[in-house]
Design a protein around this nucleic acid. Sequence first.
DNA 1: ACCTGAACACCGTTCAAGT
DNA 2: ACCTGAACACCGTTCAAGT
Lengths: 210, 210
Amino acid sequence: MESQSGPQKPKAYHHGDLRNALIHAGLELLAEGGAQELDLRKVARRAGVSHAAPYRHFADKQALIAAITEEGFHWLAERIETALREVAVEPFEQLVGIALAYVHFAQEHTWLMREMFSGLTIERETFESLHTASKTVYRLYTDVIRRGQESGKFVTGDPAALAGVFWSVLHGLAILIIEKQMRPYTDGPEGTERVTRYTIESLYGGFARR
Amino acid sequence: MESQSGPQKPKAYHHGDLRNALIHAGLELLAEGGAQELDLRKVARRAGVSHAAPYRHFADKQALIAAITEEGFHWLAERIETALREVAVEPFEQLVGIALAYVHFAQEHTWLMREMFSGLTIERETFESLHTASKTVYRLYTDVIRRGQESGKFVTGDPAALAGVFWSVLHGLAILIIEKQMRPYTDGPEGTERVTRYTIESLYGGFARR
DNA sequence: ACCTGAACACCGTTCAAGT
DNA sequence: ACCTGAACACCGTTCAAGT
């Protein structure tokens, strides 16, 4: 009906790729306005289709959000891989590199990060692909731990178990930073970097005095 | 109108304490059915008032959830204080005690924990009391760290900063456990306890080989 | 002061119908 | 096969009115 040629893309926009268009419209809305803006009707509107069209590609809202967070896990994995390439091969520096990548990701994609880990809106169990995506990230930590052990710098033990400990630190730090619980330590320029490095140093050296 | 005398409390139920009744109705609904069940109309129904009544006590849904999570922070603080009293005074064991209390709390009050930290539904900034409540918990860690330092067992440094590191580990671990990211390590009886203790041991000893 | 009932806007979801 | 428009149930919020 509307014969305007405004900001809308041409009618044949989704050459069968509406699914992808919806995911990216959702990512945009989430980044712009938070969880509140992530509603199915707005997503459809932004993708240029009717509010019923998404149901051709997603069973329900949860399924769309699952697809969105899956994309988030891919982004996170890429971010960490890039960081690992740009940082020294020294194992400790690799841990710091991962940590900074993780925390920066959380700060740059706060709402996405919340959706990825809150457990509030999607039931992980239902979406197997999400599980796979997060395992990919987990493997990155494990590899670094293993290399650190091989070079004799890290303590011995099951690398995957140690990676779990590392992930806990990373994740807790990232969440507490974005939820403003690490103030005033994160204040000022380079505040985030300082706190992150300090955290990994503390983990590396341990709490025990010797 | 309804003249049934069923499970409802008598009419004069809220002797001016509707506010509290709403908070506890909300806590119940959250525990029973998760975030989805936490809706204002259901909360009002459970408290035995009309759906408009909550607006006498809370500006909006967010304000009610803020009050609910504030109660969560009080529970968490009590849980940790109790654990600290029941555990040995040896500093390392106190860290383990806090960690177990935190993780168990997360497992027993999963939905509440998610609301407390997800950042998805309430904007912390708006509710100053929430900030105060979480600081109370933070102080518990700091005290233990300080005592550990005084007894010469822990490394030196700003106790509050070290407490931040400790909280990161705790929180990351709790979240990753309830979001099922620590499988298969948490499987089996005592799985949670084993993983938690292992995590605190790793933090205590550090990742660096010596 | 505190609560109710009706009303409004908006969202998730469904479905018969269109091309 | 893919999308639309109308319709339904339900929720957050407001407001005039009741005691």
